[in-house]
Design a protein around this nucleic acid. Structure first.
Lengths: 339, 339
DNA sequence: GAAACGAATGAAATCGTTTTCATATTCATA
DNA sequence: TATGAATATGAAAACGATTTCATTCGTTTC
């Protein structure tokens, strides 16, 4: 393995000059520069990353925290983040917290041990006060998930509005008994959507019915289960808001299998605008989230924070959400509700 | 930021002793050990990763190469790989080649610059002879994708068998006009499946019809397109083998939308056993791939290779595939073919 | 013609660890 | 009581880069 010393010896120059060539510093004669480049080529020399990291106090690695990558929303986020990071010359380490506060805290040591230059949190499993101390070691940027207490840059989507427009759409179709599905209690994303959901209900003088709330719906299978739970209710809902397209697809799939009609018997609205929304037979009305833009922005910001070294500023960047109306809420001009 | 020197000063000991405590070396008196641990706690000291990497010539980072992470098969692979890596104390850097040989080669420099201890290739975009030179810098393990020329450990699945059992299943249902879909020409995975497909055909004295071959099908949308291409053929196939559940789902979705019956008009077999196979209305017959086991094995092996430093050995570990029969090929005891 | 400046180069310190080697002490053994 | 091991500790040399500070040599400038 050739080192800078080998190149120096071969060229008869000092390490300093070699380093200057590597880093495109001025004050190197064209003659020597060529000599060095040839020697580097000949030796197959490439600077050692660890040595550079140590000397420069910089790893060019970012960490992205997500609960799990097989959730298509997070897949998309990882895809976009990796691409954006690469554009800035950064590598991306994936940290799957699997919803565990301990795992999250453990991964946070990547920042403390200087294995990464910064952390992007796309989900949060601990209270902010547990996370905050790590700010002294490097920048933390919130992306998607957020926390009002957190004094750090936050890139997020207007989830209240998302919950609101999706619900309002159902209300406009005449529905009054609308169930609510989400994934988890802890997430502020989910809570915001619920706020938007309730806001829309309130505008129609309706109150939130706890019996219609299912806050443990993450996957397709959960959607199928929730469908049955809804149908067992005394007063069945005629529409359902879900926090993910997978759950919506699960509900629809199970409903159809059991002989129900969508949206006539049950209108369903998803969230995320995943590929599967075009797959089910009534295609799925959903809320589009501009994941790419969000990821790009988060990376831009963290790169800037790494440079400026000012980490504890609360800046909020919010992107809009967009309702995509498809067939799962509007069936052949029929209204689904006969409240 | 506290360094080992600070701990040494605070305790009045040498860096050597601090290091011994950190690394659990023998020959440190219990008294001093406690003293050191207290000082570390007090200073919030944690060893610097870059310094350790440089000194130990080891980063504890692996790189995983995939075309793109939003393909659910690769999401699952990344998930399992990250978990397995974490168990061994390794971090995982994601490298999305996006099917580009240049990007792949570029990411390979992670190995050369010693930013990672090893590379797991889950897809291959270059000829092996382009990749081979990197072996002098660290271990490369093939996982999922493979190359017979490659003199490295390979963890793979028996794709010939996978293509064979899926096709044989269709043949057993009486089909004789079976279309073939795959994603890409270059991949040995796809080519092996095609070999298995042809082998099954041959056993039934049927020949491969190039007009029935669609080798550019990756996503749901491709499935929809391919469905129409198939239906425009003079002699329509009565069954179709696909290289992914997404494509299968796309075909089924579009077929249903256009009023065709599945499997009566067209039997469809997918690949991967993804969640969506349980979503479409006739659920999708597919081939299950033991992704977790494969990923776990690949990580186990690369960790071992990092230790033993013997990289250029061709060892092949093959896991079996399994046909999962669902409704998209067997409809209510009806046979779909009337050749 | 001296002073000042710019271009080109190198010696040595530095980043924060781990490891090698040396030294000192204790303790058992012949 | 000398001898050799086992235990406990530290000084200094690595690991492979970058940067600071000199130094040297031309070239301008007054």
């Amino acid at each position: 393995m050739a080192t800078i010393e080998d190149v120096a010896k071969l060229t008869g120059l000092s390490r300093t000059t070699i380093s200057r060539v590597i880093n495109n510093h001025p004050y190197v004669s064209e003659e020597k520069r060529k000599l060095v480049l040839e020697a580097m080529e000949k030796l197959g020399y490439v600077p050692n990353s660890s040595a550079r990291s140590l000397r420069n106090q910089k790893t060019s690695i970012l960490a992205l925290f997500i609960p799990r990558i097989t959730n298509p929303f997070f897949s998309e986020l990882v895809e976009a983040t990796e691409i954006a990071a690469a554009e800035h010359g950064y590598q991306l380490i994936i940290c799957q917290t699997r919803y565990s506060p301990e795992k999250e805290l453990n991964y946070m040591n990547l920042l403390k041990t200087k294995q990464v230059d910064g952390v992007i949190l796309a989900s949060i499993q601990n209270e902010w006060k547990k996370l905050k101390p790590f700010l002294q070691y490097g920048p933390i940027v919130l992306c998607n998930e957020f926390d009002d207490c957190a004094n750090v840059p936050t890139v997020r989507l207007d989830q209240v509005y998302g919950g609101y427009i999706a619900t309002k759409h159902l209300l406009e179709q005449g529905h009054t008994k609308i169930a609510y599905c989400s994934g988890g209690y802890r997430s502020n994303v989910a809570q915001s959507r619920e706020t938007g959901f309730k806001k829309a209900l309130a505008e129609y003088k309706l109150t939130f019915d706890e019996r219609y709330a299912f806050r443990d719906a993450f996957h397709i299978a959960d959607g199928k289960r929730v469908f049955h739970q809804m149908m067992e209710l005394f007063e069945r809902p005629t529409a359902v808001f879900t926090g993910s397209d997978e759950v919506a697809a699960g509900i629809i799939s199970e409903a159809l299998r059991c002989g129900y009609r969508i949206p006539e018997d049950l209108a369903v609205v998803g969230f995320d605008n995943q590929a599967i929304t075009e797959l089910t037979n009534p295609t799925i009305t959903t809320v589009h989230q501009p994941v790419k833009q969000m990821a790009q922005k988060a990376v831009d910001i963290i790169v800037e924070k790494i440079q400026t070294k000012k980490y504890d500023v609360q800046e909020i960047y919010e992107f809009p959400l967009q309702l995509i109306v498809r067939a799962s809420t509007i069936g052949n001009k029929l209204h689904g509700s006969e409240a």
